[in-house]
Design a binder for these strands. Structure first.
Lengths: 212, 212
DNA sequence: TAGATTGTTAATCGATTAACAATC
DNA sequence: TAGATTGTTAATCGATTAACAATC
């Protein structure tokens, strides 16, 4: 159970997908599920499913399979901890920030949005995700007082470059990065999850233009 | 150059990142760049950089390095073809669709947005990304007339499930999928690029809660 | 007991990295 | 020519898949 350092990044990235399918099975009232059935849904092999679960200690019963509810709960605990939500701020309250805020606010995801910051004076005082939008210059004081752990960056490339050093200084440990700028290279101490939408769209283009 | 079927998915996914860094170098007026310098920027090895480029035939000069402008142009051609833009429709004009539309509309990305569809009557007639929002029930007729190639799905899971079969029927070849539903498993013929924002956020949570 | 299915070890496969010959 | 750096082959590494013993 939750043995440290055993799960590789590819395994970790599959956990949310397992969780989604298990939630679906659970909603359908399914009681048990086998590794081969899960593999079929996930588009992979039964071997991989079993290997993945065994990174965390094995949740199944030999000869029987996996109990849907047990498995869902265990993976949920891995993903969301024991219910403590990660204090999070959103930086950049434009259209993308607005869309992204709803993902943070689903408490099923394990985060708690405690602040939203932007440089646009026109946005000040408006609400986003249940909290008021504040000027970016107040971020330092806010962090000193509330110690948020996670920053969600929905700003342009240059703003992200300018902000990066500060994020480390203010004590953030994780960044969900939508900016064009690749934080992970410069700041190896931060845990960064990059979502480069432009890159994603370009690589789709390559595949469409170059398939036989 | 552009030898078919040689580039693996990991290589393809790195192309946009190369392109970004080369665009930066180009903007700085840099003339030449070496594989080791690019590797440093990308956070990888010189070997990988050279291997990657050689999937497409090798753009460098032995003993010299790579000409920034040549390399940028060649990778650009791989990603965006010879300038013909892929006709694209956006399905789902909510907050996420709104944010995503701007990525499609940057013509640097190789797409041309020709239609936006939604089920919300309140949105009809409004513009998004330069085109009017139309009722989803008109999609079939629209596709018959304009033959869009790419669908961008910014709809909830259930709507994506309902739409999936139609997308194949209407002749779409590619999908940029933001829905919770995993099209790629059921429709192997479609080229699908999934962006599961919820999954991305959850796996960040795992890494933050389980780092030493 | 026989059948099913996990947990776990071993084999395979593919991607990354290292090495070096080619050449500018 | 010597130094630098690519193109390309070979070695390594890690992830996926297969196999099978354990056990319900």
């Amino acid at each position: 159970m939750s043995v440290q350092g055993k799960a590789s990044l590819p395994v970790i990235k599959r956990l949310p997908k397992y969780y989604r399918y298990l939630a679906n099975l659970s909603a359908e009232g399914r009681d048990k599920v086998s590794s081969s059935e899960l593999a079929h849904m996930m588009g992979t092999t039964a071997s991989q499913v079993r290997q993945d679960f065994n990174c965390f200690g094995g949740f199944g019963q030999q000869g029987i399979g996996y109990k849907v509810e047990v498995l869902r709960t265990e993976i949920g605990k891995l993903l969301f901890g024991d219910g403590e939500l990660l204090p999070t701020v959103l930086i950049g309250a434009g259209r993308l920030g607005s869309a992204v805020s709803s993902f943070i606010c689903r408490d099923a995801n394990g985060y708690r949005l405690i602040g939203v910051f932007d440089i646009d004076p026109a946005l000040m005082g408006r609400e986003m995700g249940g909290v008021p939008i504040q000027p970016l210059e107040d971020l330092a004081a806010f962090c000193a007082e509330h110690q948020p752990q996670v920053a969600v960056l929905c700003v342009p490339r240059q703003s992200a470059i300018d902000l990066a050093g500060d994020l480390v200084k203010y004590g953030f440990t994780g960044v969900w990065n939508f900016s064009h700028y690749d934080l992970s290279v410069e700041y190896p101490g931060l845990t960064v999850e990059n979502v480069h939408l432009g890159d994603s769209l370009m690589s789709l283009g390559y595949r469409l233009r170059n398939k036989e």
